[in-house]
Design a protein around this nucleic acid. Structure first.
Lengths: 84, 84
DNA sequence: CTGCATCCAATTGGATACTG
DNA sequence: CAGTATCCAATTGGATGCAG
């Protein structure tokens, strides 16, 4: 995946933050950064095996959030109403 | 669990942040806050079922972090050495 | 004991301009 | 295209003092 493709897909992220995050992920060994000597330079980011395992771990949290979102919103409404 | 017990157990958290977090967790329906009318007041926090399910989901991430910590540190050292 | 209010320092992140 | 550098605004969080 290319830099600008990631920037497009991760809606709302700034170039600065995306750069920082990618550099950290690369340093942690989660992703691989490959630069091809074209003009202008082409950079490709890909998942390393370790990164894939993290995605799987995070996915369970994502799933939790999705399945309980409405329940949490209901609790928030109850709470807010009880305070008003 | 009492407020000050939580503050002791969560090493390094400030009273301000702990208050904020607890209030948010209560609003989200993850924990239950019970105040007993003693002098001074006694407040007890406990997990609600929804909170327990979140702990289980987070646990898989915790486990991931623990098992891959050394692998990540090794990657960081390699990265840092390659940049120096 | 359990907080809330305030002040202040540090971190974070967006916008913009610039480079190989 | 893929960043880096800079400036600046907003958020975060600690420390302290106060209150029910």
């Amino acid at each position: 995946m290319r830099f600008n493709a990631l920037k497009r897909d991760i809606h709302g992220i700034s170039q600065k933050v995306l750069s920082q995050v990618l550099k950290n992920l690369e340093r942690d060994g989660l992703i691989l950064r490959t630069a091809y000597p074209t003009v202008p330079v082409t950079v490709e980011y890909s998942l390393k095996p370790l990164g894939t395992t993290l995605i799987e771990a995070v996915s369970s949290l994502t799933h939790w959030a999705e399945t309980h979102m409405s329940e949490i919103q209901a609790a928030q409404h109850l709470y807010d109403a009880s305070k008003a």
